[in-house]
Design a protein around this nucleic acid. Structure first.
Lengths: 250, 250
DNA sequence: CGACCAGCACTGGTATACAAGCACCGGTCG
DNA sequence: CGACCGGTGCTTGTATACCAGTGCTGGTCG
């Protein structure tokens, strides 16, 4: 049990197996999507057993996914009690807003003199897509994500996006509420164009200003929604908890 | 199985059970500490079975802890192959540096006109501790963490610290290498004082400048260490992987 | 001697079984 | 009628068993 033991080597070629299609990953992505799209509304009870049965797997991958979501703050786990989709906590939303603003503005300061042509082209196509008539809300969100991510890559900080994504879960849910409410993402698309053109023109100050305005507009939207639908937000006014959230697995 | 089913309610009083002392949490904290202190060096093989036996628990909490550490980027899991302590990836170190700088500088812009007296006092005591003679390196790191965290709280963004902490794992390990190398954290303590006094004086620009200098100094230290001990860093110069790292569980 | 190849030991992924604990329900007692 | 109090069914936490896949090892064959 000593001499012949296989000692795994830390080899770089292992990096190939990055995209593992394990069932944990599938469950995690499914649950995360359902939480962010509000298909699993804030406050909903998540039973490991129910989820496992519904998804056709055992408790293990479900449980591990919940733990990951819990670390992201999208789910809260109370031992021996239950797991729940987190309420939208205004404090956490504000934190996500702060963090996102800090990162995205700082990135604009690091823009290189010579912009990557491929990325610029990608951004251009993205913006064109955003103004396509009849664009669905989910599509817009996808484009919005890609736009901000590409902007970060433009300054060489693309991998910082992952951290932003993880932190802005609460913000995303709140934004989604806001956009479902207003149903007018066209204003945001225009702001995207404004930012992009400032970046292209090399006007860092203008880009910063436009970006800040854009991000703040999103945040203000959240505050407006909160005034209208306080039941989805965490308690800070002594609101009564929702008694039951019906979850339908299609 | 329907009418009498217990439906857990999302109740705020559940928040009391925040500090659960489950064995998963214990294992997670132990492993994280060992990774960050380099007691588990970058590249070390982590066998779920060995860890479980060594820590006196089953594979389950060990496995869940590794998954969490994996999401933080401190551990890499390769299915059917093995789990390893991540090498210090220069790109990730740079990302953490960028994110930290962005957040901490942005926080300085949000300092209120009237500083919280308790926090100021806490910072003052912290700085005094930092200059205590015979201070151990671990103690200094603890004080350093507390200092930066308190500064964030001073601007009302204390909870953003958690995100920074999670993201800067790689940076921490690299910093630790640097400080073990130089063994002169006194310079950093002086920079802390400089930042603090600028904050007290209400000179935001000076505070920003001092903070940037401070954080950059830390980062430069990392680069210096990397030139000296490349084997702990991820490949980018075709370095040969370490074959074996002996792990002693006291 | 070198290339090949089958077996083996170990890996993490998943499924399942058991344990500890909380919350609700309903009967009971004051 | 209200407060108490134990039973009961759920919850998550942990331990264990089994599985598919992978790299090493060592013998074999050209």
């Amino acid at each position: 049990m000593d001499g012949k033991a296989r000692v795994p080597r830390y080899d770089e070629r292992m990096a190939r197996s990055n995209r593992q299609r394990t069932s944990r990953r599938a469950v995690y992505e499914t649950l995360r999507r359902k939480v962010l799209t509000l298909e699993l509304p804030p406050g909903a009870a998540l039973s490991e057993n129910e989820l496992a049965a519904a998804l056709g797997v055992s408790r293990t991958p479900v449980r591990e996914s919940l733990i990951l979501l819990s670390q992201e703050g999208l789910v809260q786990i109370f031992p021996q009690v239950g797991s729940f989709v987190s309420r939208v906590d205004p404090a956490k939303v504000a934190d996500a807003q702060f963090l996102r603003e800090a990162v995205e503005l700082a990135a604009l300061d690091d823009l290189p003199a010579e912009l990557d042509a491929d990325l610029v082209e990608e951004l251009r196509r993205n913006l064109a897509e955003q103004e396509r008539p009849g664009l669905g809300l989910e599509d817009f969100f996808e484009l919005d994500e890609a736009f901000h991510h590409a902007l970060l890559r433009l300054s060489g900080h693309g991998s910082a996006w992952a951290t932003v994504v993880s932190a802005k879960g609460h913000l995303d849910r709140a934004r989604r509420l806001g956009l479902y409410d207003t149903a007018t993402p066209t204003g945001f698309a225009a702001q995207h164009v404004e930012i992009f053109e400032a970046v292209l023109g090399g006007d860092a100050a203008l880009a910063r200003s436009a970006m800040r305005t854009h991000l703040r507009a999103v945040f203000d939207d959240v505050e407006r929604v909160r005034a209208r639908s306080p039941e989805l937000f965490a308690k800070d006014t002594g609101s009564v908890p929702v008694r039951r959230n019906v979850v339908v697995w299609e």
